[in-house]
Every structure is written in structure tokens, then in C-alpha cells.
Design a protein around this nucleic acid. Structure first.
Length: 340
DNA sequence: GTACTGTAAACGAACGATGA
DNA sequence: TCATCGTTCGTTTACAGTAC
């Protein structure tokens, strides 16, 4: 089996930071940790960017049990190796998600009971992006009018390249933007929820098929994830944006998708202290969408099934005991245990 | 033009969880 | 016990960039 760090890297990339350079993160984090522990600096003295990086570093250590000890007792070579394994995990998870979202996105943007005209191929991306009316409409920045033929033409020809700081329409609930309230429906679209479920609570949970069907533990359960994180929303939005685009290969900095910039902007917005009221509402909304319906207080489908069988058996035994008592007998059955 | 290198996607096998 | 499904991971393939 591969190093557990690869496994931790997968979850780190999906839920904490997907575009971070891990080697400098670890190197700077260790140095900063030492200074903080010896009292040479305090957290209050850190620059805002250093504080953010340090929090990300602490989140990494929390996510990966044993990593802190491994880094502090190891050599530079060990730290380099750990960074390499974590990066491998981040990249492989992103590649797998990119691949699996590529085809299912077509289903999600197809009108219910209808079809796309012209059709979009599931495994080819050249006809997506601004070359197709449906993907173009969803990717079109909200400050541009997709119904304007000149805008469509310029976007399709590449004369007009929207940068990452222009929110595309697919981020909004109902794909509708309200200029008077920019937060209204932002990051609450159906396609984002579907993609989130696809990645974190299994592809079959999107259509609700998992309710009566055997499934392996989903990513969220494997990694003990109980709540939606702000960076995970940014990660999904970035994946959906890439999936809708016509770009064939994922690159963090290419001019067309501008993925890293787009991702960082969302993370910055969602971690901005001045936006915390809206963000807290947003995260509450996401947790209602993703976790209460699927994780069922952290129990697996199998555990739920076993629990219901135990309850049913207990009910029958209690009934038998009552009947026997009525007949004058008694039952001393060790199988009857109080609820735990 | 060719060889080399790096990166991402595609593919398939292994593994584990699950219900029948 | 078996078939199925979802996740992970290793390998292969394709492609772009660079050096010579």
C-alpha cells in the first residue's frame, strides 16, 4: 500500500487547499512552529498572509495523525518526501474528480426529460465552453449578457477572455444573478450540490440511488468529514467550471480557465471576516444539503440496517416476555440489552 | 528533427463495504 | 457467499515544452 500521506493529501486537497505548494508550506510551518514554541515570536506578530499559511499548516497536521512527529523528528529529506506524498495525493484526487465529473456534468446540464441541442459528447470537451449554448450560458460571467450575439461571438472566438474574478452564472441558485444583492443564491446552485455529492458522498447519492443500494463508504465518511468546509465549496466550483469549459487538460494557471485564481478568490471571499454572517448562513445551508440526509448522524447504511434489526428483535423479545409473564412464566434472555 | 522531461488524463486492477 | 459498487492507486498514453 502507498504511504498514508497520499491518502491524507487527497482529503487535504479537496477540503483545505488544492493549489498550495506543500513543500514551502511544511518548511515555513516547521520554522514558524519552532519560533512560536520557543516564544521568539507570537501569533499576533505574524503578517496576515503568514497567519493564513500557519492555520493551513495546523489543519494539515490535524488531518494527518503522526505527521507532526514525523516532521519534527525527521530530516529535511523526510520533509521533502512527506511533501511529495501529500502533493501526489492532492493531484491524484483532483485528476480522479476531473475525470469522473467530466461525463456526469453532461447529465446535470441536460434539461429534465429533454435533450441538449446540439448534443454534448460525454468524453470529449472540445464542443463545451463558449462553443455550446448551454455550457456557454452557465460559464458566462454575470456582468455579461449571454443573449447578446456579439458577446457570444467574442467569448467563443477567444477575443473576450473572462478572468477568474468574474463570477459565472452556474454559481447562482437557479442560475439567476440579483444585481441588488450579490450574495443572493451565490454558491447555491443545483449543479454545485450535485458535484459536491458526487465527490464527497458518492456518485450514486446525487440521484438518491444509494438509499436502497449497497455502496462503499463515501469520501466524506472515509475521512471522517462531518461538515462542509469553505475551501471544499471552492474546490467543487473550480472543478465544475473546468468541466463545463472546453479545456482538455487541467492546468492551474492557464489563461482560459484561470483555475487557481478563481479558486483562491472564492476561498478568500469565504474566509473574509467581514463576510462571516453570509458565509455562516451559506455553510449551514450546505450542511443541510449534504450531510443530514446522507450521513445520518455518522452511521453507515449497514449500521442503520443492523440497528433497525436489533430494535425489531428487542421489540419481539419484549413482546414474548410479556406474553410469557401473562402465562405465568418468565424469560431471562441476555440478548435484551438496554439502549446504548 | 529528435530526445528528453514533466504533467494530466485514461484505464484497469485491487480492495473494501454493502445488500441479497 | 457472492455480486455489485465506489475509492484508490499504479501504469500507460498523450501532449506540450525544452534542450541539443
Amino acid at each position: 500500500r502507498s504511504d498514508p500521506l497520499v491518502h491524507h493529501g487527497r482529503h487535504f486537497g479537496r477540503t483545505i487547499r488544492t493549489f498550495y505548494r506543500i513543500q514551502p508550506l511544511i518548511k515555513n510551518g516547521l520554522t514558524r512552529n519552532m519560533k512560536l514554541e520557543t516564544g521568539r515570536i507570537t501569533e499576533a506578530e505574524l503578517l496576515p498572509s503568514e497567519l493564513v499559511e500557519h492555520r493551513v499548516f495546523r489543519q494539515l497536521l490535524d488531518l494527518s495523525p503522526g505527521l507532526e512527529e514525523r516532521l519534527s523528528s525527521g530530516t529535511d529529506r523526510d520533509a521533502f518526501y512527506a511533501a511529495d506524498m501529500l502533493t501526489r495525493g492532492i493531484d491524484s484526487a483532483r485528476a480522479d474528480d476531473t475525470k469522473s465529473l467530466k461525463s456526469v456534468l453532461v447529465d446535470w446540464i441536460t434539461p429534465h426529460g429533454g435533450f441538449l441541442s446540439p448534443p454534448i459528447q460525454r468524453n470529449v470537451k472540445t464542443d463545451r465552453g463558449f462553443h455550446h449554448p448551454r455550457t456557454g450560458e452557465l460559464l458566462c460571467p454575470v456582468n455579461l449578457d449571454w443573449d447578446d450575439p456579439k458577446v457570444r461571438k467574442d467569448l467563443a472566438s477567444g477575443n473576450l477572455v473572462p478572468s477568474g474574478d468574474l463570477w459565472p452564472r452556474f454559481l447562482y441558485s437557479g442560475y439567476e444573478y440579483d444585481p441588488s444583492n450579490p450574495w443572493s443564491g451565490l454558491f447555491r446552485s443545483a449543479i454545485l450540490v450535485s458535484a459536491y455529492r458526487h465527490v464527497f458522498t458518492s456518485p450514486s447519492s446525487v440521484s438518491g440511488k444509494s438509499a436502497g443500494r449497497a455502496t462503499r463508504s463515501c469520501n466524506a465518511r472515509i475521512h471522517g468529514m462531518k461538515t462542509v468546509t469553505a475551501p471544499s465549496i471552492a474546490y467543487i466550483a473550480t472543478q465544475v467550471r473546468f468541466g463545463l469549459s472546453s479545456c482538455a487538460s487541467f492546468s492551474r494557471t492557464d489563461r482560459v480557465t484561470d483555475s487557481e485564481y478563481f479558486y483562491n478568490l472564492i476561498v478568500e471571499l469565504l474566509e473574509d471576516p467581514e463576510e462571516q454572517n453570509e458565509v455562516s448562513d451559506l455553510l449551514m445551508w450546505w450542511n443541510r444539503q449534504i450531510f443530514p440526509t446522507y450521513l445520518s448522524e455518522g452511521r453507515t447504511v449497514h449500521q442503520e440496517s443492523v440497528l433497525s434489526k436489533i430494535k425489531e428483535r428487542r421489540r419481539r423479545l419484549l413482546l414474548e416476555e410479556a406474553q410469557n409473564a401473562n402465562r405465568g412464566g418468565s424469560v431471562d434472555n441476555p440478548a435484551i440489552q438496554p439502549d446504548s
